[in-house]
Nucleic acid binder design. Structure first.
Lengths: 186, 186
DNA sequence: TGTAATAAAATACACTGTGTTCTGTATCTA
DNA sequence: TAGATACAGAACACAGTGTATTTTATTACA
């Protein structure tokens, strides 16, 4: 990728996340982003068709970073690896913490819905296959419950409670969920 | 309130919820609502300043209905009443089921965030004081977890799993949460 | 039932933000 | 260095918003 492209893309991303700290997503105009990023109008539209596409691109960017190691270590699932599920979750929390500055703006306001939906999609892959069998309650529901429980935990954490460590947060979450998750270490 | 006002207000609400079944909130224009409701442009703006305010008004409308009995029976909390907490929750689910048609449109898409936030606010009042004490985990977190767990359960229910009964749904939820909630019946 | 108040309809308008087109300039890559 | 590509700036058509004005219809109430 051209260095110029990388620079403008980074400028747009930076401007966008900065502005989201001050203004809400819906009240944010493309012109605002252009001014903040200090680029030409045409340039923005050369990179992104709409403000929504920019939002999606930023989410992709973040989650690709957060879950990159997760994807690489998927073969650790089966008995050979040493990472417990809780360790993997804690690991994800560490990566989320790195991107905290960007994420906090994405969580508050109207774009929180889009971010969270994106987040959940990734989490479904992580959580699927980790649930203890239970004949009485639909698997469908239990997966949804576990995933959104964790997603909401992260939201709670990164919005006003970011003084907790990743270990503490995963501790809180697993204090509730561990009985429903397979512990592969036993 | 003037009969004419009630009629147009109802027409706008109806048009809005109908359109949300077909189009997303952000792509929905005020003009669309005006056309669907078959009213004059000025009339819409005499009732609501913006599309967002209309959304909030509809949410208020729904939750006022759903939680009206809940508010009235708040004095049942203290030992005199016969309703267990699970019964109260089931009761709320019945009211939500009545409004299902309107709600399903509000849940999908970008306005889901606003609806859910509204929903949570009401739920905080319902759940507060129902949690079992636990010194290790912040009360703050546990309340957030219980509330969003239930809110997400409702979302799951009314989006593609509405064939379950309110009793079944509250059964699913309490199968997970009951250990953390005070059972006032014992 | 007649009347004053008020809601709605119709039309026109200014305004904001969007997305595109064009031309000239700067920067990268081979 | 040459050709390609990205960027800047200005101008533009367009859609949607919100308001103002006038006229018509409906309502509440004495």
């Amino acid at each position: 990728m051209d260095r110029r492209q990388r620079k403008t893309r980074a400028a747009i991303f930076g401007a966008f996340t900065n502005l989201l700290q001050r203004k809400s997503y819906s009240s944010l105009t493309v012109q605002d982003i252009i001014d903040e990023a200090d680029i030409g109008r045409t340039t923005f539209y050369a990179h992104f068709e709409t403000k929504d596409e920019l939002l999606r691109a930023i989410c992709s960017d973040i989650f690709e970073h957060v879950f990159s190691h997760e994807i690489l270590s998927e073969d650790k699932h089966d008995f050979t690896g040493h990472d417990s599920f809780q360790d993997r979750i804690t690991h994800i929390l560490y990566h989320l913490q790195e991107k905290q500055q960007s994420i906090s703006g994405l969580l508050s306001g109207e774009c929180g819905e889009i971010f969270m939906r994106y987040f959940r999609e990734y989490l479904y892959n992580v959580f699927d296959g980790e649930l203890v069998d239970d004949g009485n309650i639909p698997h469908d529901y239990r997966l949804h419950h576990a995933v959104s429980g964790f997603a909401e935990t992260v939201r709670w954490w990164l919005q006003g409670h970011s003084d907790y460590t990743p270990e503490e947060i995963s501790g809180f979450y697993f204090a509730f969920e561990s009985s429903r998750l397979i512990d592969r270490e036993i």
